[in-house]
Write a protein that binds this DNA or RNA. Structure first.
Lengths: 144, 144
DNA sequence: GTATCTGCAAAACTTTTGCTTATTT
DNA sequence: AAATAAGCAAAAGTTTTGCAGATAC
């Protein structure tokens, strides 16, 4: 059940880097988080379970997770902070973003992915990854 | 031919804001720019034609352009700076990006847009705009 | 004449870096 | 024992804000 932690540790070992309590703590809390989380938010969350881990370490660990292909960073225009999400969930899901309240909903739509492949093929491309963001108004903002 | 400047001026007048040399300079250079540009880059570019315009004013004018619906801000994960592009070119087209050679192909796929609307509706959202980027290999990079 | 603007310097934020001590291997 | 990591504080980079003088209406 800690496959991802194992993946990270393998990556670290490979590179001659060390497995530390702090790295495991940050990674564990990160992997237990669904959706996006900023470095700052992750820091707060980690601090609850493992006090004494510094913000710097959170940043540095997130960087490692990105290098290891386990995390992905995104930046939304509305937000000054970058956010991170698990790479495997990042891979095939997209975002609905409310332009009024900023609410973000994740969704998956296999049909869209199929169409993306078709369009790409028509242009001679193979698709490795994609990013899609839909901007609009969520139900509460629409009725308000 | 300066339709967009006129649009901006109308917006300013409407809001009781003033049309100034600096705002026109920033807007003009921005509208003459294709693709994305950061505030800093725009500042440098503006300074060449209209020296003495401050970076602060560039930021403030870009903010106005966004409010007026004439500019759009984006942030890419790789970059710490936000970038801006003209709203009308940003609208309703999507990008195929080759991850090896960087080639970018623009395309439109009405069927995908229709699906986007459906998905959004399912989550209670209305769609005002969208952004989609497909990353893969173009034909020449695939065969190479 | 009054309200808005500009540009500067300073502040606010997010992220990175240098350094000393601590930990992992 | 040698090398890497952690945490702090400080720096760096981007964007915003306060303010005094300037400009548009």
């Amino acid at each position: 059940m800690n496959k991802r932690i194992a993946d990270l540790n393998r990556y670290l070992a490979d590179k001659g880097l060390k497995i530390t309590r702090q790295r495991e703590a940050v990674a564990q809390v990160f992997f237990d988080t669904d959706g996006h989380i900023s470095a700052e938010e992750l820091y707060v969350k980690v601090s609850r379970s493992y006090p004494g881990v510094g913000l710097t370490t959170v940043y540095r660990t997130l960087k490692l997770l990105k290098e290891a292909g386990l995390a992905k960073e995104r930046r939304f225009a509305e937000d000054s902070q970058g956010v991170f999400e698990k790479e495997d969930t990042a891979r095939h899901h997209d975002h609905l973003i409310c332009i009024r309240c900023g609410k973000i909903v994740e969704f998956k739509e296999p049909l869209i992915e199929k169409l993306q492949d078709e369009v790409a093929q028509r242009h001679g491309f193979s698709v490795e990854d994609h990013k899609m963001e839909l901007y609009g108004l969520c139900s509460s903002c629409r009725t308000a």
